[in-house]
């Protein structure tokens, strides 16, 4: 909850949108980075527009300061709206153009195999991102090479930039398409931390796909499942109301 509040504060102070997709993915990023991603592992944020959730999580881990977060999206910052190039330890790639992250994660996992490293690669994609052909190229590659050291999370909030995924370019249900691959598939509540933990802990002999059923704008009543919060920044009144809702919880 503290991270959720800090995320909202950061976005409000910077006048920046993309809040909805940050709130839908924050729980998973927090669980993964706090409990699973160790020194030998790699986390790839393929949905680079959730950079705010990643920065907030890094803040909660003590790797970024309040002063750092206050620079978010401002002139001279390293905390750009989508993840930056080589500016933050543990953020190996600048993402933001969708459809790159799964390939980068698969390449990292293959490299770990060549190096005989025990590291695991964690990759968080959006659901809209599965409309990118390159994501499927990466899925074919990861499946073919049986990258069992790769765990892919899909922030399945069912909303994208200009509509519902089901009405823009429907693959619903997305997991039916993934089932045909040589992959281990799980579908869990993406806001239930224990569900995320259990799914992440499952050992597999092929690439692990974990569909996180989430809500865009999760935790803020007037944002939940509303497409406009993909882009919109918060007004002062909305920020106060959202903060009040989080305090009550």
């Amino acid at each position: 909850m503290q991270a959720r509040r800090r995320l909202l504060k950061m976005h409000f102070e910077s006048g920046v949108g993309h809040i909805g997709g940050n709130l839908s993915s924050l729980d998973a990023i927090m669980v993964l980075l706090h409990e699973f991603v160790m020194e030998k592992d790699t986390f790839v944020l393929s949905k680079g527009h959730s950079a705010g959730a990643l920065y907030t999580t890094l803040w909660s881990l003590g790797r970024l300061s309040d002063a750092d977060l206050r620079t978010f999206h401002k002139d001279g910052t390293v905390l750009s709206g989508h993840t930056p190039v080589a500016a933050l330890p543990g953020v190996p790639f600048a993402t933001g153009s969708l459809g790159h992250g799964l390939s980068l994660a698969a390449g990292t996992a293959l490299g770990f195999r060549f190096k005989q490293s025990s590291g695991t690669v964690f990759c968080l994609t959006s659901d809209g991102e599965w409309q990118e052909g390159s994501t499927w190229e990466a899925m074919i590659f990861a499946s073919h090479h049986r990258l069992s050291n790769l765990k892919v999370f899909i922030d399945h909030n069912e909303l994208q930039g200009f509509g519902k995924t089901a009405t823009v370019a429907s693959m619903s249900p997305l997991w039916d398409k993934i089932k045909g691959f040589n992959a281990h598939l799980q579908i869990v509540d993406g806001h239930n931390l224990d569900d995320i933990r259990r799914a992440t802990n499952v050992e597999t002999d092929s690439v692990s796909i974990i569909v996180l059923k989430t809500r865009k704008g999760h935790g803020i009543s007037f944002m939940e499942d509303r497409m406009e919060w993909h882009y919109l920044p918060l007004s002062k009144q909305q920020y106060d109301e959202a903060s009040a809702q989080l305090s009550i919880r």
């Binding site: 390939s103 698969a106 390449g107 990292t108 490299g111 770990f112 190229e137 590659f141």
Partner: peptide, 25 residues
């Protein structure tokens, strides 16, 4: 096994190559 036919999928091949290079290969 260090010869990798990435298939007819050049976008993925280039990103995979980047990730492998990032590890020093």
């Amino acid at each position: 096994e260090r010869f990798i036919n990435a298939g007819v999928a050049e976008q993925n091949m280039i990103s995979v190559a980047a990730a492998l290079s990032r590890q020093g290969f």
